[in-house]
Amino acid sequence: MSQDVATVRVTRYRPEKDGEPFFQDYKVPYRKDMVVLDALNYIKANLDGTLTYRWSCRMGVCGSCGASVDGVPKLTCASFLHEFKGRTIKVEPLPHFPVIKDLVVNMDDFMHKLVEIKPWIIRDKESPPEEGEYRQSAEELERYQQFSSCINCMLCYSACPVYGLNEKFLGPAATALAYRYIKDSRDQGKDARFPIVHEIEGVWECTLVGECSVVCPKGVDPMLAIQKTKILGATNALKSLLMPRGGGK
């Protein structure tokens, strides 16, 4: 099988030595079926064992190998090297997140937001298992299904300039997941979630750039979830204004 050689330009940041990140070029021979993650593994195994990056499943399920590839947030396991034939492939840590080392970013902020929106089914009163499962029709499932495909890879946050400008913004994935539970017929946790998504730094910060939905590797549409959540918030607020008692729930 014929082999090409790719030039991979990787961001290096060694906090114990450097004050600033810099780029390092590596030459990586590749076959047609190799992806950027394979190139990184090749570098680590054969050229430079100090290169640091996150990865796990190699098949677009775990969401750990995200990086900015040629300026666009992508899963490195889903970006083929041959697509960049003849060009230097720039691999940088996911934008907007603090860099810990090389391609590894600090995910604490996202992890907090994820927990904050309570991504689990909330019931007023749990019914005992003997009473059976909480049943749901196919139509009810369809209302939220796409939003449950999120793998927490944070590409949408890296694509979002609003998050880049204001770290407090709740952001795409967390809102999409909150909306997933708001729309779930089995869930009764609206009172707990609305204050978080409809907070001042919640959905209202979004200016509908739409790039979150463009980069999502799982076909989730966080932009839609945010808009729907805004409409919900505005309608609820209007209801509570017109009917101060009992409205706006």
């Binding site: 940041y13 906090p15 907007h96 603090p98 860099v99 300039p161 200016t207 739409g210 790039e211």
Partner: peptide
């Protein structure tokens, strides 16, 4: 133990990507 590197979005961020430029014209 070691400082993290924080990047900042400059005022010209919307020139870096065609979608962003389109967005800015829209706004």
């Amino acid at each position: 133990p070691f400082p993290e590197y924080r990047r900042k979005l400059g005022p010209g961020w919307w020139l870096s990507n065609g979608h962003f430029t389109q967005y800015m014209i829209r706004e």
